[in-house]
Design a protein around this nucleic acid. Structure first.
Length: 737
DNA sequence: CCCACAA
């Protein structure tokens, strides 16, 4: 029996040991030492003398050491709980310090945010005698604070460099004669042991090398088959009203074409601000040097320190600039005219009645341009790249044809228990994956296909259970999908259609590799569909490896200028920012506030709450249950303000968000476009207000240029009338006025 | 630096 295993019938009392009791029974008398210099109590007892008790050795009277009297209740009769010290141990255990234990699920802790102005916090006072405080030691940069455990990656000894003097068996070559379990190849075979199997040495099995078995079809040989003529539109006369075919050979060479975002090459449009030209600005030496500028004061608002440090960096290197906002070349696309497809119905596109009805149930009576233009290619099985403005209906654009295609490929095939999925949809956040599933599942169910969500932050069991039963379409995030695939619980080998939503984002650092790993496990030659509102050359990493002759689509004339969003920039003093934000969110409609960090999102939500505004937060520090609940509360209007990090920047659809506030300006123009796209959806009006400090004006101007957005800048003080204007509702009429 | 993405 293992030592820690409790014997049946209850554990013995902690401080009751029968052996101890027995020894004691022999008497406490110390014995035979007769040296005279010993104190009286250490010499043998004199005649008639009562033996002296040694207090230190004598058993203390222990209630627990005697058998229980009739009916006496004793604390040790119940099993001891492991997680709780026994009563009476109080002095032995450290003082309970809430900050010293990891935060419970969803628990908000004051230490996680910077102190507010004038706020007194218990840890601002010196520690009391003997008080243990987790924050008493200087925080090491390289170590997460205690309590962050859930957020940091699992510790793996092999993954970290060996510490000084640490011996690691796997770091050194095997010593002579040392047997290492993991390397059989290095030692001679033992008696009777079969030689080690070496994959590389064995001949590859080739069916071509053996005679065909009875009834076996001859092996298909690509080289042997007749050359099929490629279908070429150029070879047939143009149909009525057909636009002439775009011919790559006819277009100017890459170098000659204007780069996307290069306004310098075209004449200024009406009322357009002149382009900022680096060459025109005063030389660096003419501008005030760093030393001449007023000293900065630092408070404990880490947010601000970081922002200022960056704003005031005197010289930004090219590399730094690139890291902040990489502008990739726009992909050459077939621009479909919206009116070209305005009369098409979902039925015309080739969708069956069930799917058409399901789409109508989702509110999609007739196809949006992006849907009408991409559907034929997707149904044909071609690889497709599609760019469609935020809120233009991309989910249905890939979801509906994907279901239709799978349905056709499964015609007449029985739905098998435990079948592997044939389609995969990946998104960068769990909320987006969930949202996509709500749409795709509705369409899939209408024709008897099953979807399942595979994303992190929730137990695996249910997801694995669903996979065991068998599903057709998997929708999720790369982390958990890769995880389950690695564990052998998700078979990707039958995936013939893969979709990447927010594809350019999925190609960014941190996402690209897991995504590649996953796509490599899918069926060879499977169809790939890449969608995003900001699709650009960044997806080249995936296109080159996985896509074959992709069709690229966008809808003509879908620029920001033709959108339904009004953009404003407010230049504010840092010390007035909080008050101005309070004023801006105190309004009737739904307001979405973006911050750069999770801590600031949390802090702002608290700030608004304290100002009496129903606000909640959404960021990666919350557990999934809270994330899901909070976004639902916002969707249903039970909270009118949501403060979020960029976890909510892409793809998330919430009805009727008519104001987006960027409490921190984004670093990338793409981020700006996606955040802004949370409002003005499906033709509704919306407004985006971005707060910036004075020193950020230039960067902001450049970013707006890249995004091709026109936005007036206003210097704003707390209490200015303009704030009330901006909090009013937006209508389409306001936009044109 | 930050934000996402697995435990």
């Amino acid at each position: 029996m293992p030592k820690n295993k409790k014997p049946a019938g209850g554990r013995p009392a902690q401080n009751f040991d029968p052996r101890y009791a027995k020894k004691r029974a022999g008497g406490p008398f110390r014995g035979n030492d007769s040296r005279s210099d010993r104190p009286a109590f250490e010499r043998p007892a004199r005649d008639g003398e009562r033996p002296r008790y040694d207090r230190t050795e004598r058993p203390r009277f222990e209630r627990d050491a005697r058998p229980a009297r009739d009916g006496e209740r004793r604390s040790f009769d119940r099993p001891q709980r492991d997680d709780r010290p026994r009563f009476g141990d109080r002095t032995d255990r450290p003082r309970f310090d809430r900050d010293a234990r990891p935060a419970r699920d969803g628990e908000r802790r004051s230490v996680d945010r910077p102190a507010r102005d004038g706020e007194r916090r218990s840890f601002d006072r010196p520690a009391r005698d003997g008080e243990r405080r987790s924050f008493d030691r200087p925080q090491r940069e390289d170590r997460p604070r205690f309590g962050d455990r859930a957020e940091r990656p699992r510790f793996d000894r092999a993954d970290r460099p060996a510490r000084d003097g640490e011996r690691r068996s796997f770091d050194r070559p095997a010593r002579e004669g040392e047997r290492r379990s993991f390397d059989r190849a290095d030692r001679p075979a033992r008696d009777g042991e079969r030689p080690r199997y070496d994959r590389a040495e064995r001949p590859r099995f080739d069916r071509a090398d053996r005679p065909a078995r009875d009834g076996e079809r001859p092996r298909f040989d690509r080289a042997d088959r007749a050359e099929r003529p490629r279908f070429d539109r150029a070879d047939r006369p143009a149909r009525d009203g057909e636009r002439p075919r775009f011919d790559r050979a006819d277009r100017p060479q890459r170098e000659e074409r204007p780069r996307f975002g290069d306004r310098a090459d075209r004449p200024a449009r009406d009322g357009e601000r002149p382009r900022f030209d680096r060459a025109d600005r005063p030389a660096r030496d003419d501008r005030p040097q760093r030393e001449e500028r007023p000293a900065r004061s630092f408070n404990n608002d880490g947010e601000r320190k970081w922002a200022e440090r960056r704003e005031e960096r005197p010289v930004r290197t090219k590399a730094h600039e690139d890291r902040i906002d990489v502008v990739h070349e726009r992909l050459e696309a077939q621009a479909v005219q919206a009116d070209e497809v305005s009369d098409v119905t979902f039925g015309d596109l080739g969708f069956g009645d069930n799917i058409v009805r399901a789409l109508a149930g989702l509110g999609a009576e007739k196809p949006f341009p992006i849907q009408a233009s991409t559907a034929p290619s997707i149904l044909e099985g071609r690889d497709v790249l599609a760019r469609g403005r935020t809120g233009s209906g991309k989910t249905i654009a890939f979801g509906a044809p994907l279901v239709e295609r799978i349905l056709r490929s499964k015609a007449g095939v029985k739905r098998e228990f435990g079948r592997a999925p044939v389609a995969l949809i990946m998104a960068p956040t769990r909320e987006l994956a969930l949202q996509i599933d709500r749409t795709v599942q509705t369409i899939a169910r209408s024709v008897g296909l099953f979807t399942t969500q595979i994303y992190g932050g929730v137990p695996q069991a249910r997801q694995v259970g669903a996979l065991k039963k068998g599903v057709d379409i998997v929708i999720g995030t790369p982390g958990r999908i890769g995880d389950l695939a690695k564990q052998g619980k998700l078979d990707l080998s039958k995936i013939v259609v893969s979709v990447l939503d927010e594809a350019d984002h999925m190609c960014e650092l941190g996402f690209l590799e897991p995504v590649q790993e996953i796509l490599r496990q899918t069926a060879d030659g499977g169809q790939k569909l890449l969608f995003s509102a900001t699709l650009d050359r960044e997806v080249a990493a995936l296109v080159d490896e996985f896509l074959v002759d992709p069709q690229v689509y966008e809808v003509a004339g879908e620029t920001q200028e033709t959108g339904t969003i009004e953009h404003r920039v407010l230049v504010v003093e840092h010390r007035e920012k909080a008050g101005i934000l309070d004023t801006l969110v105190d309004r009737e409609g739904k307001t979405l506030v973006f911050t750069r960090t999770r801590a600031y999102a949390e802090m702002l939500a608290e700030q608004f709450e304290e100002a009496g505004i129903d606000a909640i937060s959404l960021h990666g520090d919350l557990n999934q249950q809270k994330r899901t609940r909070n976004i639902e509360r916002f969707s249903k209007g039970r909270a009118r303000v949501l403060v979020a990090t960029d976890v909510a920047a892409r793809g998330i659809h919430v009805d009727d968000v008519d104001l987006v506030i960027q409490a921190d300006a984004p670093d990338e123009y793409k981020t700006y476009l996606h955040r802004a796209g949370r409002t003005g959806r499906a033709g509704n009006a919306g407004r985006v207000v971005t707060l910036i400090p004075r020193q950020r004006r230039r960067r902001m101007t450049e970013m707006l240029e890249r995004a091709e957005i026109e936005a007036p800048f206003d210097d704003v003080r707390a209490g200015d009338d303009i704030l009330d204007e901006l909090t009013g509702g937006m209508t389409l009429a306001d936009l044109t006025a």
